[in-house]
């Protein structure tokens, strides 16, 4: 199994940390992982994206042009990455702020109202974990228990009290995916 994923949105949405938690979860189930950010003179409000690969085998290129899954969290990223999903691949997006919805006919498309659900939970910081939950519904490549282990390993001890809230957000995401187009 190899899953090549791009996560793209605004800086500050938790794109990079979501990728990191996904990668850590892969390690917890003995997979090879890579996490390649777009880095540069970027700032809050600018675009941010990260390529995450989980694989049972040695990973070749950490830099990719085509993806199995794109997780899209703003319009700029939709414009940039919709075309880069492999035929038969998967697009998961949050419709919040999206003015041009995806148009591809040869991919699976799912929606998750992450921003709205985070507001409902009263904590906008849970946004990226809701999205991660949505991804795990569509592509259950890592087990939630391994995400929990990943959080325990990657977060400093003083933040461990936040893990139950994050798991709750992931569960909410798992339960809130809407099918738009399934091949």
């Amino acid at each position: 199994m190899t899953e090549e994923i791009i996560i793209a949105g605004f800086g500050g949405q938790g794109v990079l940390s979501m990728g990191k938690i996904l990668a850590y979860s892969g390690i917890m189930q003995d997979q090879e992982v890579s996490w390649m950010p777009s880095y540069g003179p970027e700032m809050r409000g600018g675009t941010a994206n990260v390529t995450v690969i989980l694989s049972d085998d040695r990973i070749s290129s950490p830099v990719l042009k085509k993806f199995d899954t794109a997780i899209i969290l703003n319009q700029q990223s939709m414009d940039k990455f919709e075309a880069d999903i492999k035929p038969g691949g998967t697009l998961l997006y949050d419709p919040n702020g999206i003015t041009r919805h995806p148009e591809r006919k040869d991919i699976n498309i799912f929606k998750i109202p992450g921003a709205a659900l985070a507001a409902e939970m009263g904590n906008p910081k849970t946004f990226n974990m809701i999205i991660l939950g949505g991804f795990l519904n569509v592509k259950p490549i890592v087990k939630v228990e391994n995400v929990k282990k990943g959080l325990e390993k990657s977060l400093p001890e003083r933040h461990h009290k936040l893990i139950p809230l994050n798991i709750e957000a992931i569960q909410k995401g798992i339960d809130s995916v809407e099918n738009v187009q399934v091949l």
């Binding site: 990668a23 892969g26 992982v33 890579s34 996490w35 390649m36 880095y39 990973i59 950490p62």
Partner: peptide, 10 residues
């Protein structure tokens, strides 16, 4: 280079 320096892997 910046690819290997900035990326995370196991």
């Amino acid at each position: 280079d910046g690819v290997i320096g900035q990326m995370m892997e196991k």
